[in-house]
Structure formats: C-alpha cells, structure tokens
Amino acid sequence: MSKDLVIKDLQISVQGNPIIKGLNLAVKQGEIHALMGPNGSGKSTLANGLMGHPLYDIDSGEVIFNGVDVLELEPNERAKLGLFLAFQYPTAIPGVSLANFLRLAVSAVRGQSGNGSGEDHLIPMREFRRELRDKMKQLGVDDSFARRYLNDGFSGGEKKRAEILQLAMLEPKIAILDETDSGLDIDAVRIVGESVNKLVGPELGVLIITHYPRLLDYIRPQFVHILLDGRIVESGGWELTQMLETEGYDPIREKHGIKEE
C-alpha cells in the first residue's frame, strides 16, 4: 500500500509570528506536487516545520505520515520514517566529510544504527563506498566530493547537488525539495531534474518548492499548489504554472483579496 503524508489545518509560527495559517495538503508515494508562492509566503517555513525544526512552532493542526503522528517525533525519527528535506540553504559542518556523514546517516535510516557507536552499527564500508560512487556518477558529481567537508566552502550549485546526492542515498518515501533549482546553472538544472526523475516512481512522492517552471519541465508535477499568505489558495495542474509565468501572482491576490506585503 502506498504511504502518504497528510497535512491538516496546519498552523506554524516563527518567533511568535504566524506564518502558516491553516494549510491542508496530501502527498502520496508516487505523486509529484509543486508548491509555488512569492518570496516570504511561508514555503520554507512549511518545509522546516514538517521536518521538525525546533525554531518553527506548530500551533495547531496535524501531520500524519502513513498513519503516524509526525509532530510528536524528533527530526531523526521523521527521517527514519522516510521523510526527507532538501534544504534551500544547506548548513556547513566543518571538519565532517560528506562520506563519513552519509555513512552514518544511511545506516541510521536503514535501521542499522541504534544509539550505538561501533562499526557493526554501520553499513559495511565496501558496500557503502560502491553505492556512493555509483550514485555520484549518476549525478555527475566529482569523486572528490566524498572527502570534502559537508557543505563547507561548497558553491551554491554544489550544495544543491549534494542535497540530491543525499536524497538518492537515503531513499526516502516523501521528499521535499526546497528551491533545489535555485543557484544551479542550466546544465545542472537538467542533471538534477533528470536525476530526480529517475528516483521518482511508485516508491517516492515529491513536493517541489520552486519559483521557476524550468525544473518542472524535467519533473512534470501532477499537482500544482499556490501558497499565499500562509494558505494554499489554488490547486490545479500544469496550467497553473503557465498562468503564473504570464500573469504573476497579482490576479490570484486580487481574487482572494490578499494585499501584497
């Protein structure tokens, strides 16, 4: 049975300011959704809140993943259930190599790491290396990446590719891509688009947050949602992206009586 992420009447505030003000959305494994909305409308707030960032307060509502109440869980437990967030601004961890980090992360989500410390909690080195090398090749990521410190001194585009590499390695059930296309050059958008496309299938549901339809040319969403003022005000298909491209957000604002900030 395919698993789904169901968001019901969710309200999130940041430092006392309500940002997400009653949001409903359901994403199933195998489905591709796009979430669009102007700067500051709350897209990243939603993404962080879903993943359990401690700065983002859940004021009310429900997030149920495959029948489990996610809001009660620590971020790592959400990851183990199969949730993944590709960050808009990935954080640097100096001194920690991408490979070391990923080996621990992959072991954790595949259930091979308890709170233990020794080798036997980790997936075998050789197996991990082979898998990492294969996935890096598919993504057109340079071999030296594995030894570099996580996001430390990475260019904007390198960070985004590293996020997709992590997505590929961690094999989540539902992935949220927060502006993974921004900062990528034209070829990189294609590579990322095609790679995500390869990962997409009955096992993976994706929520793509983006400002540009270019990425969506590679990964065609079945559903497109527009976030304005903390709520999803329009949901539809591909035609919504076309409408935004030509007319911008103003007609939607007018229609819903929302003033520009």
């Binding site: 993943m51 359990g52 960032h53 401690p54 620590e74 971020p75 790592n76 959400r78 990851a79 183990k80 993944f84 967030l85 960050f87 990935p90 954080t91 961890i93 100096p94 001194g95 920690v96 070391n100 980090f101 621990l104 992360a105 992959v106 954790a108 989500v109 790491s113 709170n115 410190y149 992590q166 961690l170």
Partner: peptide
C-alpha cells in the same frame, strides 16, 4: 547544524559528537 544532521537520521548525540569531531578535525 544539529537540525541538519538530525534531519538525515542522526540522533542528537550522534549529531553533536559529529560536530565536535569536525571541530577538532
């Protein structure tokens, strides 16, 4: 940093140990 690592499946202890080990790397 903690949130980033935890969102990838690391426990808080694993995450902070990793950050400290990175610090002295």
């Amino acid at each position: 940093q903690l949130f980033y690592l935890m969102s990838r499946g690391l426990s808080e202890e694993e995450a902070s140990t990793m950050i400290v080990n990175g610090f002295i790397e």
